[in-house]
């Protein structure tokens, strides 16, 4: 028996909302840029989970194809983001985002 027949869709919406909020909390909470990237991944995954849930409940495969594309974009984003992070670390010797406030001053 699959989850579609047993679990109401509201539970999945709630779970995705909680995971997304944890991602937002992490972005606001931490100063380490690597952890902030990880929290962005967490947010993308919350959205993916919701897309898969709706796709299964509506019996529409398009939602799962969207998830496939989101995964591709997430992989590209992580590659470029970590490359930028490497360059920042090479120049400032730190991954602390508080050093990167040159636009503010």
């Amino acid at each position: 028996m699959s989850a579609i027949q047993v679990v109401p869709i509201h539970f999945y919406i709630l779970l995705s909302a909680v995971l997304f909020s944890i991602g937002v909390l992490g972005v606001l909470f931490r100063r380490n840029a690597i952890i902030i990237l990880m929290c962005i991944e967490l947010m993308l995954n919350a959205v993916n989970l919701l897309l898969v849930a709706f796709s299964s409940y509506m019996s529409d495969a398009a939602g799962q194809v969207f998830v496939f594309f989101i995964m591709a974009v997430a992989a590209a984003e992580v590659a470029v983001g970590l490359a930028i992070l490497m360059m920042i670390f090479r120049n400032t010797k730190s991954t602390d985002i508080e050093f990167l406030n040159k636009l503010k001053h």
């Binding site: 579609i4 027949q5 409940y57």
Partner: peptide
Amino acid sequence: QSLSKAENVNSQIG
């Protein structure tokens, strides 16, 4: 509005 539980589920979709 709450989405009612799927009745005729196509489990082959994934």
